[in-house]
């Protein structure tokens, strides 16, 4: 099976975020990491390849820093990578990001495309489903299990409130992968060494410009959310904090 994994670089979970001058995005001088659900998507692709053979290709869009995500994926076992490299990709909406990906892979023939179920920055949860529509492929979202069948694949979808559903579907298809579908592996030293020699194809904005259009939605203003609750911060050395907390638990929350 030939599998493409769409990956994204996002700010680290506990990175302090600052707004840019126009308050439309964050300042870029933060630490980045791979979007967590995408790491599970990559792991699942590697496991499918180990079972059925084939190839795992990883793709991302973003400035030079985003290449780190691809390097890590290559070190974990992906065979090659595609980097849509330009700062402008950061500001594309989900529709345009999917259109740019579709243009970048137009000469490839994948059996499956995986994405994480959503990104930790925008959190739109849309690129995978839009990509399926653009390619004319079927899709399924929030996937917790994938089995190859004679006619295609059988996937387990997570529904709400502890419900699940198996879905049979033909290939090629797009799947959005839920965190926790598998156990992540670490890159090995030999893997990191080998990654340096694996192919990484760069795609410039100009190469896909004709496929994308104006964004259909725009962030007018980004801001720190207004607090809805009157939070009391408890300060001091740990022993004192513990005493004060117990007093709150007893006298205000009345649970002791």
């Amino acid at each position: 099976m030939k599998i493409l994994v769409c990956m994204k670089q996002v700010p680290q979970k506990d990175a302090p975020l600052k707004l840019n001058e126009t308050a439309t995005w964050i300042r870029e001088d933060v630490s980045y990491e791979v979007n967590e659900p995408d790491a599970y998507a990559l792991e699942e692709a590697l496991r499918q390849k180990e079972k059925h053979g084939g190839e795992v290709v990883v793709i991302t869009s973003g400035p030079a820093r985003a290449q780190q995500v691809l390097r890590e994926a290559l070190a974990k076992g992906a065979d090659r990578a595609i980097h849509l490299e330009d700062n402008a990709f950061v500001g594309l909406d989900a529709f345009n990001t999917a259109r740019a990906f579709a243009a970048a892979i137009k000469d490839e023939q994948f059996d499956l495309i995986f994405t994480g179920l959503q990104s930790d920055d925008y959190g739109y949860a849309q690129v995978g489903v839009i990509l399926a529509e653009l390619l004319g492929w079927p899709h399924a979202t929030i996937i917790m299990q994938i089995e190859k069948t004679d006619a295609g694949i059988k996937v387990k979808r997570e529904l709400e409130a502890g419900f699940f559903q198996f879905v049979d579907m033909p290939l090629p298809a797009v799947l959005t992968i839920q965190s926790g579908i598998n156990k992540l592996r670490y890159a090995t030293l030999i893997g990191i060494k080998n990654a340096k020699n694996k192919p990484l194809r760069k795609v410039a904005l100009a190469d896909v410009q004709s496929a994308i259009g104006n964004n259909l939605q725009m962030i007018e203003k980004l801001y720190i959310p207004q607090k809805t609750k009157n939070t009391e911060f408890i300060e001091g050395p740990p022993a004192e904090v513990a005493k004060k907390l117990v007093e709150k638990l007893r006298n205000e929350l009345r649970v002791l």
Binding site: L17, L19, I26, N215, I219, Y223, I224, P225
Partner: peptide, 15 residues
């Protein structure tokens, strides 16, 4: 909400 709820955004339709 954006960035897992750390920030909020006002978003408009442009199409």
């Amino acid at each position: 909400q954006m960035f897992q709820g750390k920030l909020a955004a006002d978003v408009s339709f442009t199409g």
